[in-house]
Design a protein around this nucleic acid. Structure first.
Length: 284
DNA sequence: TGGCAGGGTCATA
DNA sequence: TATGACCCTGCC
């Protein structure tokens, strides 16, 4: 990977295993949108960013080199060798197809608290509605940013949500998830230390998260994978369940099989499988 | 226009 | 360990 500052943006070259569409549309995030010109824009890590692909290069707009190195390089896991990882996960023909299909996915290193609330909201919900609720949460409680001639909002921090009540959240129309959000805010400020999720043994980290109401096994694994960099977490949702049973009819316990087959990279394997199964409508 | 399913989880038995 | 109920809404 090579990079240099040019005007008010940063140009990155020699990233052969990075694809914007697959990374943003594979289902790991809810706050990045494709723009009419094909670039993607979103708010993450308290900042607005637009990123475009121009020939072989990626352009990170409206950011300086320092911010790119400190914030965006880790966020997009640009130092990760996804060529080698994809190869390692191509354990059979089915996985080879899934990896080829999702070519260029990078696992985003998202903020833990954002992931926690986002995946609580995602439970038994449609994606358009999930995005609407998250967007409303940010608009109401986040910080305003003006960029690219538009208004954007950051994802609110636990402190920014510390005083909110059920009535304050009612306009989000999150339904029965409202009280889960309130419990998550309360526990994150109190007994559950999100910063420890990156280093705690995986089973203990998961146990901690599942103390929060509305956080079951699947949501906890999503938070660990997408919001704590734990590639060993293997979220099993309806799509991954279907695909794994379709791929491997002999499997009884999908989660155990995923962890056993794909080891410390099972979380990334899950993402390839999820994207492949969902986009192709496999095993519906 | 009505009815249903949706990136699960929780509460009962 | 196994069933329902669950807030809403987009879509058939």
């Amino acid at each position: 990977m090579d990079y240099y500052e040019k005007g008010s943006h940063v140009v990155v070259e020699n990233l052969p295993h990075f694809n914007l569409s697959h990374t943003f549309l594979c289902g790991q995030c809810f706050r990045w949108d494709k723009q009419p010109d094909g670039s993607f824009a979103g708010v993450a890590m308290g900042r607005y960013l637009r990123i475009s692909c121009e020939g072989q290069a990626f352009v990170f707009h409206n950011t300086d080199l320092n911010t790119f190195l400190r914030i965006w390089m880790p966020y997009f896991d640009l130092a990760g060798d996804y060529g080698a990882r994809g190869l390692q996960l191509s354990v059979d023909d089915r996985m080879r197809r899934a990896v080829a299909f999702g070519w260029g996915i990078h696992l985003l290193q998202q903020e833990t608290f954002e992931c926690l609330l986002s995946y609580i909201i995602s439970a038994n919900n449609h994606i358009p509605r999930i995005k609407t609720i998250i967007s409303a949460l940010c608009t109401r409680f986040g910080e305003k940013i003006i960029a690219d001639g538009k208004v954007h909002y950051t994802f609110p921090s636990p402190a920014m949500l510390s005083g909110v009540t059920e009535a304050d959240l009612a306009p989000l129309k999150a339904g029965y998830r409202t009280k889960y959000i309130l419990d998550a805010v309360q526990k994150v400020i109190g007994s559950v230390d999100l910063s420890k999720l990156k280093t705690l043994p995986l089973s203990e980290a998961k146990r901690q998260l599942m103390q929060i109401k509305g956080v079951g096994s699947k949501v906890a694994d999503c938070v660990l994978l997408f919001g704590a960099g734990r590639f060993g977490a293997f979220p099993v949702d309806v799509w991954v369940g279907r695909a794994m049973r379709g791929f491997y009819p002999e499997v009884q316990d999908v989660q155990a099989a995923g962890e056993q087959k794909f080891g410390e990279l099972c979380g990334l394997a899950q993402q390839y499988i999820f994207y492949y199964a969902r986009e192709q409508g496999l095993f519906k």
